[in-house]
Write a protein that binds this DNA or RNA. Sequence first.
DNA 1: CTTGACCCTGACGTAGCGTCAGCCCTTCAC
DNA 2: GTGAAGGGCTGACGCTACGTCAGGGTCAAG
Lengths: 262, 262
Amino acid sequence: MLTISQLAAYAGVTVRAVRHYHQIGLLPEPERDRSGYRRYGAHAVVSLVKIATLADAGVPLAEIADLVRADEATFAAAVGRIDRRLRDEIAKLERSRTSIARLAAGDALLLPPEVVAYLKRLRELGVSGPVIEGERDGWILMAARWPERVRDWMPGKLASLEDPRIVRLYRVLSQLFDTSELDEPLMAEAADLMAALAEEAWQAGQRSIDPAEEDTVPFDLLELLALETDPRAIRMVELMRERGWDGWTRLEKVPPSPGVMR
Amino acid sequence: MLTISQLAAYAGVTVRAVRHYHQIGLLPEPERDRSGYRRYGAHAVVSLVKIATLADAGVPLAEIADLVRADEATFAAAVGRIDRRLRDEIAKLERSRTSIARLAAGDALLLPPEVVAYLKRLRELGVSGPVIEGERDGWILMAARWPERVRDWMPGKLASLEDPRIVRLYRVLSQLFDTSELDEPLMAEAADLMAALAEEAWQAGQRSIDPAEEDTVPFDLLELLALETDPRAIRMVELMRERGWDGWTRLEKVPPSPGVMR
DNA sequence: CTTGACCCTGACGTAGCGTCAGCCCTTCAC
DNA sequence: GTGAAGGGCTGACGCTACGTCAGGGTCAAG
């Protein structure tokens, strides 16, 4: 007769595992000796070896009980189920691994490579940290909802960086948001630049996305993000409104007003 | 501002997951509106998208907090750790899958194919169910401790089935244990056969395994298994002892005695 | 005013054990 | 005889990442 630790050692499992199998009724409780210790015979060893082998093969404990005494059909079905489950788990982990691999290459997991390239270009153009972080977070919002569309947009965005006025705008914004001061003349310059660019896009027929059938939530979040990030963004919205534009990141033409927003 | 379900939907997670992230401090609790509802801004969306993306990539939640604001080296190390962990998990599941595949082919998971072939041969020779089950359980015990050695033994075991006396022995045992009667003359025949075979093996120099340096536990369990399985095995041991052999599955020469065992 | 869709907190459940805590039993050396 | 070591016992909490009630409040629409 064996003690619990001898039994466990024979089957290559821990004592705790054996007690667990007792607890869930997978392995019957054996007789106790006069001091209350469990004493195991050869049948218990055979049972435990079977259990341990199946468990090691990835069979859920709940199914092992049925499995060890099932007929052909039940057995085959169970094996099929288990195999499918394992296959799915493996596939999921494989996907995780490729994601992790992309992680090793920087922002690439959260943003499509095109966006990463765009942000890199901004950095090269001397755009400051805070502005780039705002851009990145904004693109994360967009990419979360429209991963494919964002990729389509990027060539245009990248090309627009050839326009010296746009580069100038980014640099002005950099200067604005890199300190904690409120530089009113500089903000006016930024607003003028943005208004001019918006007007040009408007003339060229580039309206904002049709609000009728579009999901505006990402754009709303974009506005919100800017307002949350820096109180000066509120002032910028005001300045734009004075110039006849509503919004900050997605501009709409409105009658110019000198009023306060909200 | 978003409600919790809008936030969750945007990031593609469940409401419960968001609350869980709050609970473990992964995502900061937002302001509440006057009815106690959580209200989220754009920054929360960005944070949650990051968290969800990393979690989906298989990063443990406990590491995500560090990961989203780690320096280069820490980040690379963490990514390396995570990738290794994923690789190991995949490898384990792959092994499980091959095991499961073997399961689909019968006993093959618990016993080496050679033993399965041996048992199949016994069945062909007309050995009855109970005896085969006893054999199988016995081999499970042996294979659990000595998987390799068992495979080496099998060619000899298989060859021994060419000996008509051994086949006869198996058939007598089948007849004996297939009913619940105690057939004394048949038991005597079985004992005579076993004794003769043991004597022959002994003459041929095939001693039992050297008990000095051997692990006898598997053999002890084998004896125990027989005694547990059927009380008539006790009688068989007595009969063998009268013929000068000790044990039942691993025989040792002893002075013949008509006494009772133990 | 009701109805259905949300929101809240709190708490238990999941799988398979690991790991105490607190106590008993046996054995061995001193 | 007496510690100390090395089992064994039960009971209970911990871990992962949430799912799923239960019991109750809130909001918007018909």
